[in-house]
């Protein structure tokens, strides 16, 4: 009885020591590319890409196991930046910028449970226990974490309507010609 306990304990201690020493002496500096890629990502650790946070996503990008278009909140700007960093060509036409939206708390349903407040990666939700929560629209990245944890479905992602400042022309040819155009076509 004692022999196996002792031997297993000794084995555990020795292996643990070896692991500890290995970690110390064979330490590999983090891949600088991963850090650089991570710097390009939004950094909100929202997890929409399916990787554990932006570091995980950067690692997957550096390994080449993830597509450049993995980051929904980053949109085209991030794809273009990643492509430039990795030196690859990417077809941006297929990448749609996520429709700008923000989380919206429906006050009649909110019970002030503060769960959303705790998961928000950018501190965009303001509130305290038993008080209705509100969203800072400048800080919200529409990652949806709060929507998932809300017990009363009081949070929805609401699209932000375009304003005169944010509106811009669509690419020519991506909309059908106006009815009166092309009427003179030969």
């Amino acid at each position: 009885m004692i022999v196996p306990i002792l031997s297993l304990t000794v084995l555990g201690v020795v292996l643990g020591l070896i692991l500890g020493l290995a970690a110390r002496y064979f330490k590999v500096e983090g891949n600088p590319l991963v850090d650089e890629l991570e710097a390009l990502l939004p950094g909100s650790q929202c997890g929409q890409c399916g990787y554990p946070g932006c570091t995980g996503a950067a690692q997957a990008l550096a390994d080449g196991t993830a597509p450049l278009t993995l980051c929904p909140p980053g949109g085209r700007a991030v794809v273009a930046a990643l492509a430039a960093k990795l030196g690859v060509e990417v077809d941006l036409s297929g990448v749609q910028d996520a429709v700008p939206s923000i989380a919206d708390v429906r006050e009649e349903l909110c019970i002030g449970c503060t769960r959303c407040y705790k998961v928000c990666p950018t501190d965009a939700i303001l509130g305290a226990a038993k008080h209705i929560h509100a969203v800072f629209k400048e800080a919200c990245t529409a990652c949806g974490s709060c929507v998932d944890v809300c017990p009363t479905e009081a949070i929805l992602l609401r699209q932000v309507p375009p304003t005169l400042q944010s509106w811009s022309w669509v690419k020519p040819g991506s909309q059908p010609l106006a009815a009166n155009e092309g009427a003179l076509a030969a």
């Binding site: 939004p42 950018t122 400048e138 800080a139």
Partner: peptide
């Protein structure tokens, strides 16, 4: 916005 987000997250 991304830079602001990153700062907030940090």
């Amino acid at each position: 916005k991304q830079e602001a987000t990153k700062k907030l997250a940090e």
